[in-house]
Design a protein around this nucleic acid. Structure first.
Lengths: 295, 295
DNA sequence: CAGCAATCTGGAAACGTTACCAGAATCGAT
DNA sequence: ATCGATTCTGGTAACGTTTCCAGATTGCTG
C-alpha cells in the first residue's frame, strides 16, 4: 500500500507544499540573519557559513540589513515575526536598544546573538575573544615601542566588540605602565567616510598617535585610506580589527586581529539547530588571532 | 464598525499571520538570491542592493550558495519551489546546465537573471557591459605598449561575463592589429588558489605575458597574490575585472574594470517587482567603467 | 411609505497540510 | 473458532487567512 502511494506520488510529480506544512506545523524552517550591512565582508562570510551549515537541516536563511538603525531593525523583526521565522542570528545594532529586544522576545523564536550580550534576552551566543587578540596586539606594540600614544578609530560603543577591544587595549597598556588617552579615541558611525575623517583628525594633532587601531571593516578601510596619504616615515603603526580581502597586500606597517567569520556563521547556525532540537542555549567563545606584520 | 474592529485588533495585539496569508493567496512575498558564493563581495553587495530595494515592497530575500555546483543549485531551486518563492534573482553557475533551467521553469516563479543569458528561459535580466569596459582597458594597454601578450586568468567559460570579457579583449587587440594568444588563457574554477596557480604558470613561461587580466573577484585576489612575489621591474601590467575593497591601495600597476554591484542588485529587484505587478520581463544593461592606474 | 439599490454583516468554503480517532482488518494465542 | 491485541485505513478537524455569497440592514427616490 505504502509502495503504491509512493509510486503514485512519483508519477503525478507530487511535492508537499511547504507553506501548508508551515501553517499546520508552526515551523517555517526559516532563519533570519540580522546584520548592519550584509555586504560587509564579515557579515557576508557569516551569512555564507550559516547558510552552508543550515542547508542540510533544511533551513533557509533570510538576510536583512538594518543600516545601523535600531528602528529599522525592530521593524524587520516585527515583519519577520509575522513570517513566523523559527530563529534569529542577530548582530544587533545596539545591545541596549529595548525596541528590538522586546520585539525579539515577543516573537517567541529562538535567538543566537552574534558577538552581543544581553542579560534581558534568553539566548545563545557566539562571541569572539577580542580581548585576548587585542592584548596580543598591544604586547607587540609595546615591544616595538609604539604603544605610548594609541589612537582608536572604531564604530559604536553600544556593542560588545568595541567594549572588549577597548578593555584589551586599556589592560594591555596598563600592564606596560601606560595609560590610555581617551582623547585619542574616535567613535564613528561604522562608515568608511567617518573613519577617514576620524583618522585625519588624529593625524593632524600636534602630537599625533604612534599607533592607530581600527575597529571593524569600515573603520579599517577608512583609516587605511587616510594613512595612505601620509609619507612613510611619518606613518604611525596600524592595527586592524577584522580581516579584509587584500589587507595583506597593502604596504602599511600593520597587524591584524582577525577571526574566522565563516566559522562564526557556522557555529551560530549549529547553536540554533541545537536549540531547535530542544537543547538549552549555549554561549560559545571563538578565538581571535593577532597576525603581526611589518613592512 | 470598521473603527471598532480596528480598535479591538489593536487592543488584542492582533497581527495577521503571514504563513496563512501565503497559503491562501499563493504569494509568499519571498525572493531567492541564487549565487555561487554570497561572501564574494560582488554578490554580497548585490544582496545588499536587492534587499534594500525589495524591503519597502514587503519582500524578503532568501540567500543560497551553490558553491559552484550546478547540482547543488538545482537542488536549491527544487527546495525553493516547494517554499513557493515568488521570484528568483539568479546568478547561475552555468547558463547551459539544463537541470537548473528546468527546475526554474517548473517553479513557475518569475526570474531575473544576473549577468546570464538563456534563450530557453523567459526571464528578465540585468547584464553588465563587460565588453566596452574591456575594450577601454585594452585601448589603455595598447597605448602603454603592453598589449602584445595578454594573459588571462578567469573563472568558468559557462557564463556570460567571461565570454564577453574575452570578446572585448579579442576585439580590442584585433583593432590594434594584435592577435590573442589562447595559450595564455587559463580558465580556473573561480577559486583563489586556482588563480594563484594559473598566474604562476603564466609568469614562469619563457616568454611571460606583458599584461595579466583577471576575471572576477577570486581570480583577482589570486593573481595579486602571485604577482606580489615578482620583483617590480619584471611585473606585467595587471587588469582586474570587478572591484575589491582595498584594490586601490595595492601597489601594483593595475587598472580595474568595475561596476556598481549594489546598483545591479537594486535594479534586479526592481525588475522583479515590475514583473510581480504584471509587467513583461525587461533586460537592462548596466555600464562598466575602466579605471586606469599606474603605480 | 413602499420599493429598489446600495451597503453591511455573518457564515461557509477553500488553500494543502498534519494530527487524531474510530472502525475495519489482520494476527497470534488459547 | 474465539478472543484480545495490534496494525491499517479512511475520514474529519484544525492551522489562519481570503473570497464569495446570501440575507439583513440601511439609504434614497418617487
Amino acid at each position: 500500500m505504502r509502495a503504491r502511494v509512493i509510486e503514485a506520488a512519483e508519477r503525478l510529480g507530487y511535492e508537499p507544499d511547504f507553506v501548508a506544512q508551515s501553517l499546520r506545523s508552526g515551523s517555517t524552517m526559516t532563519v533570519a540573519l540580522l546584520a548592519r550591512d550584509i555586504s560587509n565582508p564579515l557579515f557576508a562570510e557569516i551569512a555564507r557559513g550559516a547558510e552552508s551549515a543550515s542547508r542540510d537541516a533544511g533551513y533557509s536563511i533570510i538576510v536583512v540589513n538594518s543600516d545601523g538603525s535600531a528602528e529599522i531593525e525592530a521593524d524587520h523583526v516585527r515583519k519577520l515575526r509575522r513570517r513566523r521565522v523559527d530563529g534569529y542570528l542577530a548582530s544587533l545594532v545596539d545591545e541596549t536598544a529595548t525596541a528590538t529586544l522586546t520585539e525579539l522576545e515577543r516573537s517567541g523564536a529562538l535567538i543566537v546573538l552574534l558577538d552581543r550580550e544581553s542579560p534581558q534576552l534568553q539566548a545563545a551566543a557566539v562571541l569572539s575573544d577580542h580581548y585576548h587578540g587585542m592584548r596580543a596586539a598591544v604586547d607587540h606594540l609595546v615591544a616595538l615601542g609604539v604603544a605610548d600614544r594609541v589612537g582608536l578609530v572604531t564604530g559604536g560603543l553600544q556593542t560588545r566588540p568595541t567594549k572588549e577591544r577597548i578593555r584589551g587595549l586599556r589592560d594591555g597598556m596598563a600592564a606596560a605602565g601606560l595609560e590610555m588617552d581617551t582623547r585619542l579615541t574616535y567613535i564613528d558611525d561604522w562608515s568608511e567616510a567617518g573613519a577617514v575623517a576620524a583618522t585625519e583628525r588624529l593625524l593632524a594633532l600636534d602630537n599625533p598617535p604612534t599607533t592607530i587601531v581600527a575597529g571593524g571593516t569600515q573603520s579599517t578601510l577608512g583609516a587605511i585610506r587616510a594613512l595612505a596619504d601620509v609619507s612613510p616615515d611619518q606613518r604611525p603603526a596600524f592595527i586592524a580589527c577584522d580581516d579584509v580581502p587584500l589587507l595583506d597586500q597593502v604596504p602599511l606597517p600593520l597587524g591584524v586581529v582577525s577571526r574566522d567569520a565563516t566559522l562564526i556563521g557556522q557555529t551560530a547556525a549549529e547553536l540554533l539547530l541545537e536549540m531547535l532540537q530542544g537543547e538549552p542555549p549555549r554561549v560559545v567563545t571563538l578565538q581571535t588571532t593577532f597576525r603581526p606584520r611589518t613592512v
